[in-house]
């Protein structure tokens, strides 16, 4: 169970021959993820960790049916790679690549909506459903099978919080990295909707940060829909000054928009438990969930 990826996920890796693509293919295989083929134009006919490599997604899929793709290609070629996967019928695409131009991201997202595909990222650590499928670059050993669903805008902060949960025996159903860019395929509301339908998920953790208003919208959603599962949130960037981009392209306070205060207030007003420090997430959850 869990959301988006599970033991039935069969994935291809686009950009498999690059340093990161090759390294993480190995780790995903070790975790048990079904990686059926890789794609790098010009490298067709070779193999990476016994995974056959093809020049095009089309050819890879002719020989190895797949339902997901994970993308490691450099930023300026990423839009092309995503469109290639979508046009060939793949419905779940994880974009690990960072620094994709916003204009490219917007074009890709519009097409993905038309073909009803799910895009995770860009600039994401990926997604993991413990013991079933890891489609990403997260260190696997910090995750543990359980009932907490997580959605986050930040990679390492997800690891920090997941590791804390795992230490306290609070396992996870699925951990979903939304991505650190302003434009991402999924947002917190999408994640909340999916976790609501997943019977394995008993509580949801949302890890937000400064920039934009997606946390505020998620808070409104929780209040309006009387969200049936407990929600705990953490928002990074209380100490961030306005006008400065805090590493992520999406993490910036502009004028009055995007402050941590506004997000925390919105969550609290919606009855969402807000953690003061990353480790408080575990404590809040331990009180809310019986595991």
């Amino acid at each position: 169970m869990g959301i988006i990826v599970d033991k039935n996920t069969r994935a291809i890796v686009q950009g498999i021959t690059g340093t990161q693509g090759s390294f993480h293919t190995k780790l995903m295989l070790e975790y048990g993820t079904k990686i059926v083929a890789g794609v790098t134009p010009g490298k067709g006919g070779t193999q990476i960790h016994d995974v056959p490599v093809y020049d095009t997604v089309e050819e890879a899929l002719e020989k190895h049916p797949a339902n997901a793709s994970i993308i490691f290609v450099p930023a300026r070629f990423t839009a092309d790679a995503v469109l290639e996967a979508l046009e060939n019928g793949i419905k779940t695409v994880v974009i690990i690549t960072e620094h994709i131009p916003m204009k490219d991201a917007l074009n890709v997202m519009t097409y993905a909506q038309q073909v009803n595909a799910t895009i995770i990222g860009p600039n994401t650590p990926g997604i993991i459903t413990p013991e079933e499928c890891k489609l990403g670059i997260m260190p696997a050993h910090i995750f543990k099978l359980g009932s907490i669903g997580m959605a986050s805008r930040s990679g390492t902060l997800t690891y920090e919080i997941a590791a804390g949960l795992t230490r306290k025996q609070l396992g996870q159903s699925t951990c979903l990295g939304l991505g650190g860019d302003p434009i991402t395929g999924l947002n917190f509301i999408d994640a909340l909707k999916m976790f609501e339908k997943d019977p394995q998920t008993k509580a949801v953790v949302l890890i937000g940060e400064i920039g934009g208003n997606l946390e505020e919208l998620a808070a409104q959603y929780v209040a309006k829909e009387k969200y049936p599962k407990p929600v705990v949130a953490f928002v990074a960037g209380r100490s961030a000054p306005p006008g400065k981009r805090m590493g992520h392209a999406g993490a910036i306070v502009m004028g009055k928009t995007g402050t941590a205060e506004s997000k925390i207030k919105a969550f609290k007003n919606a009855g969402v438990n807000v953690a003061e420090k990353p480790s408080d997430v575990t404590e809040l959850l331990a009180r809310l969930v019986n595991v």
Partner: peptide
């Protein structure tokens, strides 16, 4: 990681 560094500052 940007999120972790932000959380560290906080």
């Amino acid at each position: 990681g940007a999120g972790l560094v932000m959380a560290t500052l906080d």
